[in-house]
Amino acid sequence: MTAFRVIIPDDEWSLLEFTQNDLPGVAVVNTSLHGFEPKEVFAWHLSLMLNFEELIDNGMPSQLEREIVDPFCERLESEIRGKDKQKPNALFLARITWNGTRELIWRVFDPELPHFHLQEIINSTPPEYPRTFDYQMDEDPEWKLAEWHLSHTGN
């Protein structure tokens, strides 16, 4: 196994407004991950898609919906990253709101940890989540799945 020296950058956020299929979208992207190396340490791309219920114009969530969903998203951001800030299991890449959905994206070191955690949440009784969600985790050591997010933030 190859040993790597990894320096975890402090988060830096950029706001990106976009239009896709004639609907507005908003992305908050962690631009500190531009040029991050060694990419292969966080070789897994985790995308979680949550479905909003209360919408206003153009598929955007209402204020009340954001008040319901945001605390859950913030909890997930923290739990998936892990407790050790110096050696996190995941780096938070982006939060995207578009067309009645919120997508949360991480770059992950050990995929089994967030998979197990998310399965526990999904199978919880009573449900520990305010809205339905699904997730997908793909091995992506070259960060190809993160290119759009990192290339559209002006850095």
Rank of each mutant, 00 (worst) to 15 (best):
M1H: 10
M1V: 10
M1E: 13
T2S: 14
T2K: 15
T2C: 13
A3C: 08
A3F: 07
A3W: 02
A3E: 12
A3L: 11
A3N: 08
F4T: 13
F4N: 10
F4K: 10
R5V: 12
R5I: 13
R5Q: 15
V6A: 13
V6G: 12
V6T: 15
I7N: 14
I7Q: 15
I8D: 05
I8T: 08
I8V: 15
I8R: 01
P9C: 11
P9Y: 14
P9I: 15
P9H: 12
D10P: 01
D10S: 14
D10E: 15
D10C: 13
D10K: 13
D10H: 12
D10M: 14
D10R: 14
D10F: 08
D10I: 12
D11L: 11
D11C: 08
D11Y: 07
D11E: 15
D11H: 08
E12T: 05
E12D: 09
E12K: 06
E12V: 09
E12F: 02
W13N: 10
W13E: 09
W13D: 07
W13T: 06
W13G: 05
S14W: 01
S14T: 13
L16M: 03
L16A: 05
L16C: 09
E17I: 08
E17S: 09
E17P: 00
E17W: 03
E17L: 06
F18N: 01
F18C: 05
F18W: 04
F18H: 11
T19A: 11
T19H: 07
T19D: 15
T19Y: 10
T19M: 14
Q20N: 09
Q20W: 12
Q20A: 07
Q20V: 05
Q20M: 07
N21Q: 08
N21K: 07
N21E: 13
N21P: 00
N21H: 06
D22F: 05
D22M: 06
D22A: 06
L23S: 07
L23C: 10
L23M: 14
L23V: 12
L23F: 11
P24I: 06
G25M: 06
G25D: 05
G25I: 04
G25L: 04
G25A: 02
G25V: 04
G25R: 05
V26T: 08
V26D: 03
V26W: 02
A27E: 01
A27W: 00
A27V: 04
V28R: 01
V28H: 02
V28W: 09
V28Y: 03
V28T: 11
V29S: 00
V29H: 01
V29I: 15
N30W: 02
N30Y: 00
N30E: 07
N30D: 02
N30S: 07
T31R: 03
T31W: 01
T31Q: 04
S32K: 01
S32R: 06
L33G: 00
L33P: 00
L33A: 06
L33S: 02
H34E: 12
H34G: 05
H34S: 13
H34C: 14
G35V: 04
G35H: 04
F36C: 02
F36A: 00
F36Y: 02
F36W: 03
F36P: 04
P38L: 14
P38C: 14
P38G: 15
P38R: 09
P38I: 15
K39I: 10
K39C: 02
K39P: 01
